[in-house]
Structures are given as structure tokens and as C-alpha cells.
Design a protein around this nucleic acid. Structure first.
Length: 426
RNA sequence: GGAGAGAUGGCCGAGUUGGCUGAAGGCGCUCGCCUGCUAAGCGAGUGUUGGGGGAAACCUCAACCGAGGGUUCGAAUCCCUCUCUCUCCGCCA
């Protein structure tokens, strides 16, 4: 959420920035409403002041045994008027809030201007694109032949876009989760948390999924509860309505959760395999920082995510999302894209973003800057470290052998009880 | 699911016959004094949000005692609804 005062004072800048991300903003209506609101405040507050003073008078008069009824009946009118104005003011404030919640974040100045994903500049490449002396198979073919992925049976009990993992496949998924969490906690300094997998609407509001992207979420019937689409939601909202001390920042958290997404509007895309599921596992990293250090923290967050792929020896590249491709809440985002041999393409496996104070303002997460009196909104960041299902896809496809077996990357073997290869018979 | 108790400032904790209580007292914290060091002691200060003014320091007004409504000239105090916490019973991994 943007600061209404910032919009008021920097209208042209805000409009220009939002235009770059393809958002056609009409700030006039919100500013008009804001003007009205401030006028109403002045009127109602002066009446409240009068009420306060006169009420004290009434108390005095009663004490002295005087007759206060003429003033009381006059104040009755004043109170009535206050109630009216307060009602109108409340409506205006709600309307402003509603509008603010729908305006996307302003991109950071370092974000390249562009229209869509084709304009995302590649900023880094790592590893050699795997060369095979045979035609690499897609992971669903490998997974089914190995007997570790079962899409058909998952569809019986649930439906499309769900997967049943068997045996070493299930173990591989679990190994990846532990491997990632251990890397972030022991080497990168993150504190592991295990949050609820269901959150309420104010948490969804806080991180920006609501009110605009309701159709992407799974909601529990008759409850104000939603299945988490990412651990970002519960973890960022840990400090909702709290004030932290600057000396406690930055805070690093990592969490494993399953993620549930309705994938509305993606009917034709990635219909086979694990790439696009209604439920997938993810290890997330979340940071709470001061504004000053946040962009350095974004760089190190990216490196923390990259290291997972490096240890698994999976080739990838990093792109900076251009203004037109940026997510609703983000000020700046790097996507890590891993090489998928079966598709001969790079596919997103992690998204690392700085949200500035956008989420903090929504979730009301603040900190006390050292040496200053005024409290301020802190900055939130998060990144996947990594999407587990897609990591499993990348391993199957990049580490596949001609006979359909898959070698386990060495870094992962301790987590696989020493298993170093998954073979069709195994 | 049934019965009961509670929710006040960073923390503890007064205030529930409605009226200078944004809120006593204590702890903590900050600054100053004092002290050979530490501890103790003394003095001052110490919430948030919004409006208005100011270059700023800051000044001023309003709101906030779980949330939202209501009664009243006036509500932390009375009434209603909701949320959460705790205790007991039932059920249960």
C-alpha cells in the first residue's frame, strides 16, 4: 500500500511509475476524496473540542447545583451532528483505504522499464547447459517410469494438478526440503519457523494477495481462512501490528510450507507434470530490514537462493523483472530460472523480491530507528529457496541417464540415506 | 460442543456508585546529578495515529484502555455483538 501523503505530494511521479508497470492509475478520485476527508476532520474535531469543553462546564454546574438543562439540550444537537460527520468521515476513510489497497507498488529506480517478460534482462548465468548424447525425457515420463510420480492416481482422489509421490520420489522431495532448510539455517543465518498453513483474510491483505487476487486462492468454506499460497504470507505477517527495535534488524526467517494456488486463468499452460500444480512444496526465505540496508539484503537473498542450485549442480540464469512484469506488491524482483532439458528452456524456480514498505504499511509492521524519535515502516523481502517440486523436476531432467535412471546430486545423498541413483527397477 | 473468568501503556498493575484519568503506583528504558568501581540513591523525561501550523526542533487540536456498535451533555467505567486468552466438562491426533 502506498502512503496517501506520498501520493498527494508526488502525484506525477507516482502516476508515471505506475504507468511503467502497465497500471493505468486514476489518482484524481482518491486525492479528491482525501481532500474531502481532511475538511471533514477539521469540522468534526472542532465540534468535538466544543463538546469536551462544555461537558466539563456541565459537570461544574451540576456540582454547584445549577440548572444545566439549556446547555445540555444544545449539546444534544452538537452530538448528533458529530455522529453524522463521524459516519461520513468513516465512509470516506474506508473508501480511500479500499482504493489504496488496489494500487500496486511503485517500482524501484533500478528496475528496467519494459512491457513484459521478454524485456527482462538476464543478469547472470551459472553452470553449463546440460548436453545429452540422447534426447532428454521430460520429468513426468521419467517419474512415471521410475514409479516415483503418479499423476493418474492423484487425479482419482483429488483432481488435475495434484501429484502422488511414491517411494524414493517422496523421499527425494522430503530430502530437498531438509537440505534447503539446513543450508539456510546453518550457513545463511536464517531462523527456521513452521507457520500455520491456513491464514485469515487480514494476513492475506497484509502481504497483498487480497483484496485483488482472491480468485488465485483456496478458501475454506464458512471460514475466514485461506490455504497459504506461499510461506511469505504467514511469515511476513508474524509481526503484524508490532513495532520492532532497529537493533533487532535485520531478521532472517526460513520456512517450509506446502503452497496452494488455484492457478485460475492458466488452463492451457503446463498441463503435464509437476511444473504447475494446485499444491506444491516450497522453502521460503523472509527478511525484515531497514530501508537503508534492504537492497543489499536483496542481493544476498538472491545469492542464498542461488546457492541451493549450485550445490545441486543445476544450471540456471537470473533475470531482473522489468517494470511491466513486476508483481503487484514488489518494488524489485529477481527471478532465478533453472534449465529444464525436456523443454529446452529456463523455467522460474525462485523469485526474490524487495517489497519496500508496501507490505509493512498494509500489515502495520514498524520499527524504531536508532537515535530518532519517529517510528517508521520497515522493509520486507522474500525469496523462494526454492520451489521444491520444480527443483525435483530439474534434478530428474538434468541428472537423467540414457536408461531413464536418475543420479542423485552428491550434495543430496546424505539426505537420501546414501542412495545415489534412482533406477527403473529400484 | 457445554459452563465460567478475563482482555488497560514496553512489562506488572490500579481504576467498574460515568465527569481535568492518556490514564495512579511499580518495574523497565533515556538523559542529568551523585558515587573510587559495581550496586544503591536523587532529579527530569519516557505511547500511537490523524488534522492544523512550522524549514526544522517543535507547538496545537482530536482519537485510541481487545474490535465494532449503542445509551448519555459526557464512557476505560453502563448495554449489545464479535474476537482472543485462561479454567472446568465433553470429544479427540
Amino acid at each position: 500500500m502506498l502512503d496517501i501523503r506520498f501520493i498527494r505530494d508526488n502525484r506525477d511521479t507516482v502516476e508515471g511509475m505506475l504507468k511503467h508497470r502497465g497500471y493505468d492509475s486514476n489518482l484524481q478520485s482518491i486525492l479528491t476524496l482525501d481532500q474531502k476527508r481532511r475538511e471533514a476532520i477539521q469540522e468534526v474535531e472542532s465540534l468535538k473540542h466544543e463538546r469536551k469543553v462544555v461537558s466539563d462546564q456541565i459537570a461544574q454546574m451540576k456540582k454547584n447545583g445549577e440548572d444545566a438543562s439549556p446547555i445540555i439540550s444544545r449539546m444534544r444537537q452538537v452530538s448528533k451532528r458529530i455522529k453524522e460527520l463521524d459516519g461520513k468521515l468513516g465512509e470516506a476513510e474506508e473508501e480511500i483505504q479500499r482504493m489504496l489497497l488496489l494500487i500496486p507498488n511503485v517500482p524501484h529506480e533500478s528496475v528496467p522499464v519494459g512491457k513484459d517478460e521478454n524485456d527482462n534482462p538476464v543478469v547472470k548465468r551459472w553452470g553449463e547447459i546440460s548436453q545429452f548424447p540422447f534426447t532428454p525425457k521430460p520429468h513426468w515420463e521419467l517419474g512415471e517410469k521410475l514409479g516415483i510420480l503418479d499423476f493418474e492416481r492423484a487425479a482419482k482422489m483429488t483432481g488435475a494438478r495434484f501429484t502422488l509421490y511414491w517411494g524414493l520420489g517422496a523421499q527425494l522431495e522430503r530430502a530437498l526440503i531438509n537440505f534447503m532448510l539446513d543450508l539456510h539455517t546453518t550457513k545463511h543465518g536464517y531462523v527456521e519457523v513452521l507457520p500455520p498453513f491456513v491464514v485469515n483474510s487480514s494476513a492475506m491483505m497484509g502481504t497483498g494477495q487480497l483484496p485483488k487476487f482472491k480468485e488465485d486462492l483456496f478458501k475454506l468454506e464458512d471460514w475466514d481462512y485461506y490455504l497459504v499460497p506461499t510461506a511469505e504470507v504467514p511469515v511476513t505477517n508474524i509481526f503484524m501490528n508490532e513495532i520492532l527495535e532497529e537493533e533487532d534488524l535485520p531478521l532472517y526467517y526460513t520456512a517450509y510450507t506446502p503452497c496452494f494456488r488455484s492457478e485460475a486463468g492458466s488452463y492451457g499452460k503446463d498441463t503435464r507434470g509437476l511444473i504447475r500444480q494446485h499444491q506444491f512444496n516450497k522453502v521460503e526465505m523472509v527478511k525484515f530490514t531497514t530501508p537503508e540496508q534492504s537492497y543489499d539484503e536483496l542481493e544476498s537473498l538472491l545469492l542464498d537462493a542461488e546457492e541451493v542450485l549450485q550445490k545441486l549442480e543445476l544450471p540456471y540464469r537470473v533475470v531482473t523483472l522489468c517494470t511491466g512484469d513486476l508483481g503487484f506488491s514488489a518494488a524489485k524482483t529477481y527471478d532465478i530460472e533453472v534449465w529444464i532439458p525436456g523443454q529446452q528452456a529456463f523455467r522460474e524456480i525462485s523469485s526474490c523480491s524487495n517489497f519496500g514498505d508496501f507490505q509493512a504499511r498494509r500489515a502495520n509492521i514498524r520499527y524504531r530507528p536508532k537515535g530518532k524519535k519517529k517510528i517508521a515502516y520497515l522493509y520486507t523481502l522474500n525469496g523462494s529457496g526454492l520451489a521444491v517440486g520444480r527443483t525435483l523436476v530439474a534434478i530428474l531432467e538434468n541428472w537423467q541417464q540414457e536408461n531413464g535412471s536418475v543420479v542423485i546430486p552428491p550434495a543430496l545423498r546424505p539426505y537420501m540415506g546414501g542412495v545415489d541413483i534412482i533406477s527403473p527397477r529400484g
